[in-house]
């Protein structure tokens, strides 16, 4: 960082610019990211710990927490498997429609979640494509857990695949070919060669996916029907509390969501600090040894 006196600074290392840039980023970050989170925490406890506890313990809030967790437990694993499969297909195979598949995977990123929700209404709603069929089979998709899960999955479909595709593209097929030529089966190759080399990107994708599933509002709001204590996920419940002029309750519930987010991030950091993280990238941990013939 510091440069010797009298020598010109390295490119991009002028002290004034460096200090200004760091200050701007710090202030902006604090103002836009940190401050609102602090406000949530402060507001949540503004009527005392007792009121906070009561809000959290309220059956409707508890149910919303349960529903959000259940949705994540179903949607995240499915999307993880989908993401691995999609990344594998796109990077390891040549097939007709490969580029098209990449575009398809990206769609949920660029589309408003509300559109996804409305689309699900048209597909599974009573007047929708499969509506009558589902009704006669007495399967409830909309205004129930399946609809919430489907909407969440739509929104988060790209997360894992997007993390894996560039990495697996860079890695190519050599490692898998090497493992297979040494006699490893497809499963063995996947679990002992492919997976260890993508695990950090995969984990990162899963963490992002999970955070988004838990926080998803737009798409879920359309398909869930907002039934208090039945189909309200945590984000929807927060909005409901807010509309009930229960700002403190809303902040209390929001603090739970914020806490979940913090926990996911901390989990990721902790996992990366594990010895395993070093093992997967030994170059970062140990000096390169020069050739000794």
């Amino acid at each position: 960082m510091r440069h010797a006196k009298g020598k010109p600074p390295r490119v991009g290392d002028r002290p004034a610019i460096r200090r200004t840039l760091i200050a701007v980023v710090l202030v902006t970050g604090a103002f836009f990211v940190l401050a609102p989170l602090v406000v949530i925490a402060v507001q949540a406890f503004s009527l005392g710990v007792g009121y906070f506890g009561a809000t959290i313990a309220h059956p409707d809030t508890r149910h919303a927490i349960f529903l959000t967790a259940a949705t994540a437990l179903i949607a995240v694993p499915i999307n993880t498997i989908f993401g691995i499969a999609a990344a594998w297909a796109v990077t390891k195979y040549e097939f007709w429609g490969r580029r098209f598949l990449i575009v398809i995977i990206e769609i949920p990123f660029s589309i408003s979640p509300v559109v996804a929700g409305v689309a699900y209404l048209f597909v599974y709603g009573l007047q929708g494509l499969f509506g009558p069929m589902l009704q006669s089979a007495e399967v409830r998709v909309l205004f129930a857990l399946p609809g919430i899960v489907l909407a969440s999955m739509f929104v988060t479909a790209p997360f894992v695949a997007r993390e894996l595709i560039p990495l697996m593209q860079a890695q190519g097929r050599d490692l898998e070919e090497a493992a297979t030529s040494l006699g490893a089966s497809g499963w063995r190759t996947f679990f002992s060669v492919t997976l260890p080399n993508i695990k950090w990107a995969l984990l990162y994708g899963v963490v992002l996916c999970n955070a988004r599933v838990m926080g998803e509002f737009g798409a879920v709001s359309v398909v869930s029907g907002n039934i208090r204590g039945q189909t309200n996920t945590l984000p929807l419940h927060i909005e409901l509390l807010y509309h009930d002029y229960n700002a403190v309750g809303a902040f209390a519930a929001a603090s739970i969501l914020a806490l979940l987010a913090v926990v996911t991030i901390v989990a990721k950091v902790l996992l990366e600090r594990q010895g395993a993280g070093r093992r997967s990238r030994p170059a970062l941990a140990a000096p390169i040894v020069e050739a000794k013939p």
Binding site: E177, A178, P196, S280
Partner: peptide, 13 residues
Amino acid sequence: VGFVFQHYALFPH
């Protein structure tokens, strides 16, 4: 067969 790849293809982990 024993196959040796141009870029070694050693398992980095």
